[in-house]
Design a protein around this nucleic acid. Structure first.
Lengths: 145, 145
DNA sequence: TGTTGTTAGTTACAAAATCAACCGTTAACA
DNA sequence: TGTTAACGGTTGATTTTGTAACTAACAACA
């Protein structure tokens, strides 16, 4: 029982997805790294706080599916660099509320704008139909509904 | 000039791509790790050699876009575990030809089959049109033509 | 209350990725 | 030829990630 011999790495979805993900994030990665010295985890935490406002680390974890140790370390670094502050929750002292500082919000606005422009530029390499179906298919594969 | 406020992480293509890539590779990762103790870099090198036959590390790098240190270390581990051998190139002694051993080819055939089945299972969560357009769009984004 | 189990978050240690410097070989060319 | 630059590949130091064990706080319920 021979295998279809046109099955190579370029046809393997996980590989294709990974290549596309890496390639497509390269230029943007450079921006948050160069402008704010951030790692991807930090940019993600910043983005969540900028978009949804005050959150706990747990809530960020639930939304982003990042592991809690990644979040913990990202929060530490963002705090050190004065992009966010922690506020104790008196009703449950295990958790802390995270808020962006003025500086954090400025970075968020800046990067949000860059991301939007970058996303549009990527989408421009696709037809409208491709873009729509790509997004739908990716959501399915990522199990986001 | 306000920003479109429906732009969140779930709409940011690099993020979506990354989530889909991670989610979709999880189960397969488990297979080459459990059966052969391989890392992703090693599975990729193995796959390239299985698919294209004898290659140098440089050629694997050109095809896979992996960094040369990753490839160097993956080759080392695959050699230690007797999945491949090195053959000197007398015409250019800087480089070596890499060949799979019998054991390496067996692992390749096994994993190739698993990958094919896994890819088909992923594709089954999509409609035929979605699948076709997804692959085309990913190739564009990954700049593979 | 007291015990047991769970949760939010951190820390310690191991595994892996990244980056720069490096070695031996080949190429370019004076 | 002799010198310099470029190349293929490896190594070592540093950074980042992953895994598990941990702390402090809360919850459930005898």
């Amino acid at each position: 029982m021979p295998q279809k011999d046109d099955f190579d790495l370029q046809n393997f979805l996980p590989y294709l997805l990974n290549q596309a993900a890496e390639e497509s994030s390269l230029a943007f990665q450079q921006v948050y790294k160069d402008r704010y010295g951030m790692l991807r985890t930090e940019w993600r935490v910043l983005f969540h706080l900028g978009l949804y406002g005050r959150l706990t680390a747990k809530e960020i974890g639930a939304r982003s599916k990042m592991h809690k140790t990644k979040i913990s370390r990202a929060v530490q670094r963002l705090e050190e660099r004065r992009f966010l502050t922690r506020a104790p929750d008196d009703a449950d002292r295990r958790q802390e509320y995270l808020d962006l500082t003025v500086q954090g919000r400025a970075a968020y606005r800046d990067l949000h704008g860059v991301a939007q422009g970058y996303d549009a530029a990527l989408a421009d390499t696709l037809t409208a139909e491709e873009e729509r179906i790509l997004r739908a298919a990716l959501r399915k594969l990522a199990r986001m509904g």
